[in-house]
């Protein structure tokens, strides 16, 4: 079952590798050009890699809550028809609680930054 995936992975990796080899033959130069970053024609004053201000970090926390919830969601999806109404009610009460959190975060302005 996983053998197919491994063959697929090998096939695509070989293709990507072959493309790189091909490009070495067809490109005007084999080695990459060492360039400065594009800054509208100016020289960089510092390295761009730095502590980036990801202003959406409150959303990441909210996302984490739901992402963990997906752990239950997938198995639940597979068995809900067998377990009956109880499972549906339990899951959606749980999701309802999470959604209440989302609306609270929305009201607090977690989805807006500028």
């Amino acid at each position: 079952m996983y053998l197919g995936i491994l063959v697929l992975l090998a096939a695509v990796l070989v293709s990507v590798g072959a493309l790189y080899v091909l490009s070495r033959l067809t490109a005007v130069a084999r080695n990459p050009l060492v360039s400065r970053p594009f800054l509208s024609g100016w020289v960089p004053e510092e390295h761009a890699l730095s502590r980036y201000h990801a202003r959406y970090y409150p959303v990441t926390l909210l996302f984490l809550a739901f992402d963990v919830e997906m752990l239950f969601m997938y198995p639940w999806a597979a068995v809900v028809s067998r377990l009956g109404p109880g499972a549906v009610i339990e899951m959606f009460v749980f999701l309802g609680v999470l959604m209440a959190g989302v609306f609270w975060a929305w009201r607090e302005g977690a989805f807006k930054w500028a």
């Binding site: 067809t26 490109a27 005007v28 130069a29 990459p32 050009l33 060492v34 360039s35 400065r36 970053p37």
Partner: peptide, 10 residues
């Protein structure tokens, strides 16, 4: 793109 040279940065 196959003919174009690759680039790398400082």
């Amino acid at each position: 793109l196959l003919r174009q040279r690759r680039r790398t940065l400082v």
